[in-house]
Simulated scan of single mutants.
Amino acid sequence: MKAVEVTGSIDEQGNLRIDEPILGMTNQSKVRVIVLFPEAIEEVDPDDTSIEEVKASLKRALQEAKAGQRIPLSQMWEGIDAE
Results as ranks from 00 to 15, higher is better:
residue 16 L to I: 01
residue 17 R to C: 02
residue 17 R to T: 01
residue 17 R to Y: 02
residue 18 I to E: 01
residue 18 I to V: 08
residue 18 I to N: 03
residue 19 D to Q: 06
residue 19 D to S: 08
residue 19 D to F: 01
residue 19 D to P: 00
residue 20 E to Q: 12
residue 20 E to Y: 11
residue 21 P to K: 02
residue 22 I to N: 08
residue 22 I to W: 05
residue 22 I to D: 09
residue 22 I to C: 05
residue 23 L to G: 03
residue 24 G to H: 02
residue 24 G to K: 01
residue 24 G to R: 01
residue 24 G to W: 01
residue 24 G to T: 01
residue 25 M to L: 15
residue 25 M to V: 05
residue 26 T to H: 10
residue 26 T to Q: 14
residue 26 T to A: 10
residue 26 T to P: 00
residue 27 N to D: 15
residue 27 N to L: 09
residue 28 Q to G: 15
residue 28 Q to M: 12
residue 28 Q to Y: 12
residue 29 S to D: 15
residue 29 S to A: 13
residue 29 S to W: 08
residue 30 K to M: 11
residue 31 V to F: 07
residue 32 R to A: 13
residue 32 R to L: 13
residue 32 R to M: 12
residue 33 V to Y: 01
residue 33 V to M: 02
residue 34 I to G: 06
residue 34 I to S: 13
residue 35 V to Y: 08
residue 35 V to P: 02
residue 36 L to K: 09
residue 37 F to M: 13
residue 39 E to S: 10
residue 39 E to N: 12
residue 39 E to M: 09
residue 40 A to G: 09
residue 40 A to L: 11
residue 40 A to W: 08
residue 40 A to P: 01
residue 41 I to M: 13
residue 41 I to F: 09
residue 41 I to K: 14
residue 41 I to P: 03
residue 42 E to D: 13
residue 42 E to R: 06
residue 42 E to K: 10
residue 42 E to T: 10
residue 42 E to P: 03
residue 43 E to A: 14
residue 43 E to V: 06
residue 44 V to G: 02
residue 44 V to M: 12
residue 44 V to Q: 15
residue 45 D to G: 03
residue 46 P to I: 03
residue 46 P to Q: 04
residue 46 P to Y: 04
residue 47 D to N: 15
residue 47 D to F: 14
residue 48 D to E: 15
residue 48 D to G: 08
residue 49 T to Q: 14
residue 49 T to E: 14
residue 49 T to M: 15
residue 50 S to P: 13
residue 50 S to H: 09
residue 51 I to G: 05
residue 51 I to A: 13
residue 51 I to M: 09
residue 51 I to D: 13
residue 51 I to E: 14
residue 53 E to F: 03
residue 53 E to H: 06
residue 54 V to A: 10
residue 54 V to M: 08
residue 54 V to W: 05
residue 55 K to I: 07
residue 55 K to Y: 07
residue 55 K to P: 00
residue 56 A to T: 04
residue 56 A to R: 09
residue 56 A to I: 00
residue 57 S to M: 08
residue 58 L to S: 07
residue 58 L to A: 10
residue 58 L to D: 10
residue 58 L to R: 08
residue 59 K to T: 13
residue 59 K to V: 06
residue 59 K to A: 15
residue 59 K to E: 15
residue 60 R to G: 00
residue 60 R to T: 05
residue 61 A to R: 07
residue 62 L to P: 00
